[in-house]
Amino acid sequence: MTVTQANVSAAGAVSDRVKRHLLADRIYHWLMAACVLTLLATAFLPIIGYKFEWLGLHWTTGVALSALVVIHIVRAVIWQDFWAMMIDGADLRNGWRRLAQALGRKRAAPGKPGKYNGLQKLYHAGIAVLVLSIIATGLLMLLKIDTPLWRRNPYVLADYQWGWIYVVHGFAAMALITMVMIHIYFALRPDEWRLTRSMFRGWITRREFEEHHDKARWAADER
């Protein structure tokens, strides 16, 4: 059933819940969270003094995260509304109006967002850049270790090239800590609990939908 058909079929009996995240997307989110936290812990705990055998868990979790991200990209491009996560003109206009309003300027009131607001889209873009940088460099770094699947071959790149790969991996990983802190902070804020709940249970209430979202920009499925 398409979103349009779902809306039509639900027109007769309006549900008090609006579907925000499918089960597959929630599972992806929590698996990705587990991978990212494991990767950060195995990367940085030894650096701050908690010594343990971190490499095996680190690279296997990295490969798992890479597979998850590939699945997510395929799902987003083929089955999900890819453009729902892209910053568009309306997001820029709303952001400008919100800033002008905060500064006390007389401007038209900002409109409501679709499924995601402009800052959420910006955050997603930032996370995407960081995670893709970490995955690309991390997969190359696998060439420097022996695994059950391949033997190490560090000679495919020169020393200075390896150096820059490690630099990108390290900076992106440290920036990911900042991003994860901000993400957890917003998830815990009471005014954002509806979004946190939807990442556990999949839905927001109809009242929350009408209060925070523009129906014209998010053709939500009703459940």
Binding site: F44, I47, I48, D159, Y160, W162, G163, W164, Y166, V167, H169, G170, F171, M174, A175, I177, T178, M179, V180, M181, I182, Y185
Partner: peptide, 25 residues
């Protein structure tokens, strides 16, 4: 030979996250 990013920067990234959170709150 360059071998990676300096881990001394780790605390600054944590601090940046903390500052963003406190400012927003």
């Amino acid at each position: 030979v360059l071998i990676g990013a300096s881990w001394d920067l780790l605390k600054w990234f944590v601090l940046a996250g903390a500052v963003a959170i406190v400012l927003h709150a």
